[in-house]
Design a protein around this nucleic acid. Structure first.
Lengths: 203, 203
DNA sequence: GGATCAAGGGAACGGCCCGTGTCGTTTCTC
DNA sequence: GAGAAACGACACGGGCCGTTCCCTTGATCC
């Protein structure tokens, strides 16, 4: 048995080269940035990273898995959900960061778009996307909303998951269905304020 | 010059075989239905339609273009926007139909999902998707909302485009980001009612 | 009704990238 | 310092791409 790279293997691969890993993740995002995700090949990533194709296939099952890990790695710092007590302002701050990443960051947006596209015919990759990339961040947002609900900033019978969808779905709708980007902060604020109105506590 | 198939050619291809066209469109949706869009190849479509690959490439530039035309062809009847005067009920009816198509119709959902994925790295195909498939239907919805606004069913300063996004984006969010399907009508009604609350006329 | 000419069928092509295998070398671990 | 695992390099069989060649079919025009 050639040792499955992904899930729970017993000894966590003691000799894996950290520098190769970095070079591969960086190369994958670089290539996505200037060609888009689609045309990028495992061979090209290997070449750019100065690494053998075999090394990539040893640790990742596919191009998508590489990009997923690269994005997860890159997104960590900026994604934290603020908690100032003012829900609306926290949402503006958090979503502004996300919008920048999705529509302006050439190292992030194109790679994520292509990755999402890829998950449409790769169930394992889809699982990774949901569990590793989206899951924790959605959970963050959910916690923030539950807290806001407990404090009475939004209605008691508002479903946090629905609120998340109303807030974030339009971003991905525009991104994936080519409906133009969210250019200015004003537009974002209008969106958030409408959603807040939908879940305002009953007076 | 080998005659460009897509745009404005002078004589509209007088001798094109209607039966081959039908067979190709049908074959493309059939194959999407039982393999998903991704694995489907032009060769497979040709084989299933009992047609030469060349015939496909004569009239369409890519697999995506075939599926796009097939979907546009298939969606025509069911997509009409009702106008009973009651905006909420009209939305429920229209969106129920859409949800069925997206999540239950094995001939429609998988093909559309894959097609959308494909548009992420094919700008021409993206243009076709927006202009031919989404454009006219979004315009229908927009007209219905403008009418509702004129009658005072929603707020005067509600942006129809924003309302459309709030309503429909969650559907595609769930579909493309693997967040589970919209199972029951109740859930759909809750969504619509929240959006209506966000754009309710000021009393 | 026969000539004409685009459309269609069939088969093959070079090219690209996939995922795997081989082999010799490097590098960490004990 | 010995052993093992990861690594770089290269080559492979295979699949599908989009295109090409050649020949047949069938609708349109005179």
């Amino acid at each position: 048995m050639p040792e499955t790279p992904s899930a729970s293997a017993q000894p966590p691969h003691r000799r894996r080269s950290a520098s190769s890993r970095r070079a591969i993740l960086d190369a994958s995002l670089d290539l996505c940035a200037d060609q888009g995700y689609g045309p990028v090949t495992v061979e090209a990533i290997a070449a750019r990273a100065g690494v053998s194709k075999k090394t990539i296939y040893r640790w990742w099952p596919s191009k998508g898995a590489v990009v997923l890990e690269a994005l997860d790695d890159a997104a960590n710092p900026a994604a934290d959900f603020p908690d100032s007590g003012d829900l609306l302002e926290d949402l503006v701050v958090q979503m502004e960061g996300l919008v920048r990443g999705l529509f302006s960051d050439r190292r992030f947006g194109p790679a994520l778009v292509g990755l999402i596209a890829d998950t449409q015919h790769d169930p394992m990759l889809a699982r990774g996307l949901v569990d590793d990339l989206f899951g924790p961040r959605v959970e963050d947002a959910r916690r923030r909303l539950v807290k806001a609900r407990d404090v009475g900033q939004i209605s008691q019978d508002a479903d946090p998951n629905l609120v998340i969808e109303l807030l974030y779905a339009p971003l991905y709708y525009r991104l994936l269905l080519h409906q133009g980007d969210l250019h200015d902060t004003t537009e974002l604020r209008v969106l958030i304020e409408h959603v807040m109105r939908a879940v305002a506590p009953k007076t």
